[in-house]
């Protein structure tokens, strides 16, 4: 089953579910960020508890559950102050009153409290659960499910071991850099920016994110996204919950991504359905068909020794093409450098 992102407001959610009506039997949850607690992503709408109640009603009318995401990396404003934690508990109470049963939380203290209140808690990928032992700790705190660290998405052996401990959900279309040194700090930036407690004038991590991929297109292939065609590999190891990333995008974008994964295939530029960063699709074409077999042939046995391995570099030469002025500069349209 699929978890589908909502931009957060009732109108967009209603529009999205109306568009997806014919495939909703594959969707069990629609999630949205509640920025007042801070979230791990940019939020496009200032959603409050009243909005959540309306979204819950919209979801209920379409037969799907709503899932509220409170997953900041920095939680000092929630867990390190008694009155702040009381406010958090009051928020959970309000969500309960609104009919919300599913939460995505990052901080273990919040997981424990929400689980005790009876919520179904999925541990956020922001908690970076990437081994069975860590999953076990969250299970002991009352978590019902773990959304695994996307860095281990393609390590089928690791995902399988975690799935032996607790229900696992995999974020399929996050296109972040593999081994990204900026990830934690970017998530921390979002924690504060989404709450509005700091003014963020620049997003230097986002600048690097695009720049490093243009500099080495193999980074686009190394990114731990899961292709729509590969979902059956995960079902084979006991994973049946898949999360579509992209709550900061338009309804049309979300619909395209959701359909690709529900249909189990996408013809064309795979970057069209990958989140983070979506703008890359206008600069680069990632030929999805050229990635056939890559999960089994290379990615699932990846140990991160890119220098010696060369699998993704070779794959990128076949699968990645520059567009626009980059294509003009390279000449042939293939990647691999620009002549001086």
């Amino acid at each position: 089953m699929f978890s589908v992102p909502s931009p957060g407001d009732p109108e967009s959610t209603s529009e999205l579910l109306r568009r997806l009506e014919d495939v909703l039997d594959h969707v069990d949850r629609v999630y949205l960020g509640l920025p007042q607690g801070g979230t791990g992503r940019a939020t496009v709408r200032a959603v409050d508890e009243a909005d959540v109640a309306e979204v819950a009603e919209v979801c209920d009318s379409h037969g799907v559950d709503v899932e509220v995401v409170i997953n900041p990396l920095c939680t000092v404003h929630i867990t390190c102050d008694k009155s702040a934690f009381r406010a958090f508990e009051a928020t959970l109470g309000a969500l309960d009153d609104a009919g919300v049963e599913h939460l995505v939380l990052s901080d273990p203290m919040t997981v424990e409290t929400a689980a005790e209140m009876g919520f179904h808690v999925s541990v956020s990928c922001v908690a970076h659960v990437n081994e069975p032992g860590k999953a076990e700790r969250f299970a002991e705190l009352g978590a019902s499910e773990v959304t695994v660290d996307t860095a281990v998405n393609r390590r089928l052996d690791v995902v399988s071991e975690i799935a032996d401990v607790i229900d696992v959900r995999v974020i399929v279309n996050e296109g972040c850099l593999r081994y990204c040194p900026y990830r934690l700090f970017h998530l921390c930036e979002f924690s504060h920016a989404s709450r509005g407690d700091v003014t963020v004038e620049d997003d230097p991590y986002f600048v690097r994110c695009i720049s490093e991929r243009l500099d080495d297109p193999a980074e686009i292939v190394r990114s731990p996204f899961v292709r729509p065609e590969d979902l059956d590999e995960y079902e084979g190891i006991g994973v049946s919950a898949f999360k579509i990333a992209g709550r900061a995008n338009s309804v049309a974008w979300i619909e395209r991504a959701v359909r690709a994964y529900i249909e189990g295939g996408y013809e064309g530029n795979l970057l069209d359905v990958l989140d983070c960063p979506t703008v890359l699709r206008h600069l680069v074409y990632l030929d999805n068909s050229a990635l056939d077999g890559a999960l089994r042939e290379g990615w699932s046995s990846c140990r991160g020794d890119c220098e010696r391995c060369g699998f993704c570099s070779e794959l990128a030469r076949r699968a990645v093409r520059f567009l626009g002025g980059l294509k003009d500069a390279v000449g042939s349209g293939e990647t691999g450098g620009v002549e001086a």
């Binding site: 720049s211 297109p217 703008v279 626009g324 002025g325 980059l326 003009d328 390279v330 990647t335």
Partner: peptide, 20 residues
């Protein structure tokens, strides 16, 4: 013009330069 700038920056700096 955006596309031309992207091409010319890439050629001048001898690496892929994106103009968003």
């Amino acid at each position: 013009l955006r596309r031309e700038a992207e091409r010319r920056f890439s050629e001048t700096l001898a690496k892929p330069v994106g103009v968003l």
